Simulated scan of single mutants.
Amino acid sequence: MKSTDFINGIYKECITNQIELYENLLENTQNATDPIWIETIKIYKSLTNEEKISILKFFKIIEVNTVASLLSIIDGDKAIYDDFISFDLIPQNSENISGNLTNEFLQKDDMTD
C-alpha cells in the first residue's frame, strides 16, 4: 500500500463517510434517546437549508483537523507529552509510508473542496 492509497482510504472513511453519517442521522433520526442527540437534532431541524450546509461544513473542519492532528503525531511533527516521536507506519508486505502523511492528507482535503 502506498501512502496515497492510505490517505485516500482515511479520507473516505473518516471524512466523507462520517459527514454523510452525521447528515443522515440529523435528518432522519426519529427516536433519539441520548439527550445530546435529542437537543442537537432539535437545533439542526430548526435551521434553514443554508445553515444546515454550514453546520455540516463545520463538522468537516473538525473531522479534518482531528485526523490531521493524529497524522501529525504519527509523522513526528506533533508532540505527545511534550516529546516528538516519529512512528513507522508499515502496511503488511510494504514499506514505511509515514513521514509526510499530514501534508498528503491536507492536500487531499484541498482538492476535495
Rank of each mutant, 00 (worst) to 15 (best):
N100H: 08
E23P: 04
L21N: 14
K60S: 14
A32F: 06
L70M: 13
K57P: 07
F58P: 08
D82M: 13
L26G: 02
G9W: 00
E51H: 08
Q107K: 14
S3W: 03
E20V: 04
F105W: 06
N93A: 12
I36K: 12
S46P: 07
M1P: 12
Q30P: 09
T48Y: 10
S94R: 05
E95C: 09
D109C: 10
G9I: 01
I41F: 05
D88G: 09
I90R: 03
K42S: 15
N96I: 11
I80S: 14
E20N: 13
I85H: 11
L47C: 10
T40V: 01
L56M: 01
T112L: 10
D113I: 14
A79I: 02
E20W: 00
V67D: 03
S98L: 01
G9R: 08
Y44V: 08
N93M: 11
Y44A: 07
A79H: 03
I10R: 07
N8P: 02
V67S: 00
L47D: 06
T48F: 10
S72Y: 04
I55V: 15
E104Q: 09
Y22E: 06
N65G: 12
V64A: 04
E63A: 14
I53T: 12
S46Q: 13
I80M: 13
E20I: 02
A79C: 10
A68T: 01
Q18E: 11
T29G: 03
D82E: 15
T29D: 10
D83S: 14
L56H: 02
N17P: 06
I97F: 02
K60W: 02
S46G: 11
I85T: 14
I90S: 00
S54F: 06
G9L: 07
Q30G: 11
Q92A: 13
K2T: 15
Q18G: 05
I61E: 11
P35F: 04
I7N: 02
K12F: 03
L26P: 01
D82H: 15
S54L: 11
Y44W: 07
L71S: 00
A32T: 06
S94D: 11
E23W: 08
N103P: 00
D75F: 03
E63W: 08
N17T: 05
L56D: 04
D110L: 14
I73D: 00
K42F: 12
S46V: 08
K60M: 08
I41S: 01
Y81D: 15
F87P: 04
E20C: 00
L89G: 05
I43N: 14
L21V: 10
